[in-house]
């Protein structure tokens, strides 16, 4: 896997979105790659999670996909890359390269509205918006995904994965995961 670290948002690649409109094929491939489910949160697609950056045909039969990790050490990124490679090869593109980019850093604000709705439906309290940097003040209440009460308390800052915190609802007493703001 290729990992880029020094990229600057101010100097986009020649084929960055905005410079050229995606072709019909690129749009189709992006939809395919974007529909791949997150290996750890399979209710979300990669598009809804906001980790799919660009899908560009760099030559005939050659596609380059840029993916960004949620957390620096997220082990799911390797499975995501393999899944994307597989679906694009199955579509008939022989040469698929998936590269990981770090800049600009992913934020929970990149999760789509539909993604947030699905998280709550799945029993995970979605991240609060406006995660500029660091922990969001706890004064903003987090709603229990089971009963809807806002009377919830933090049990642990880290839960089943680095991106979640463990909370408990004071109303229905159920524990639940909260997708932390990042």
């Amino acid at each position: 896997m290729v990992t880029g670290t020094g990229s600057r948002p101010a100097s986009p690649a020649p084929a960055a979105p905005g410079d050229t409109h995606p072709t019909a094929l690129e749009t189709e491939l992006r939809a395919l790659a974007g529909a791949v489910p997150d290996p750890e949160l399979p209710v979300l697609t990669l598009e809804e999670l906001g980790v799919l950056r660009t899908v560009v045909m760099s030559g005939p039969g050659t596609v380059r996909v840029e993916l960004t990790p949620t957390y620096t050490g997220c082990p799911a990124i390797e499975t995501m890359s393999e899944d994307i490679e597989r679906v694009l090869r199955e579509r008939g593109i022989p040469d698929v390269s998936v590269v990981t980019v770090l800049s600009p850093a992913w934020s929970t604000d990149d999760i789509s509205a539909e993604g947030r709705r699905k998280l709550a439906e799945f029993g995970i309290a979605p991240p609060r918006p406006g995660a500029a940097d660091g922990p969001v003040p706890l004064s903003l209440s987090i709603r229990c995904p089971h009963c809807g009460s806002t009377d919830t308390e933090l049990l642990s800052r880290f839960s089943s994965t680095a991106c979640k915190a463990l909370r408990r609802c004071a109303a229905c007493r159920e524990p639940f995961d909260h997708f932390k703001e990042l």
């Binding site: 880029g4 670290t5 600057r8 620096t72 770090l102 800049s103 600009p104 850093a105």
Partner: peptide, 8 residues
């Protein structure tokens, strides 16, 4: 060379 990683 460390800007991108550090920001994340």
């Amino acid at each position: 060379a460390f800007t991108g990683l550090a920001a994340k």
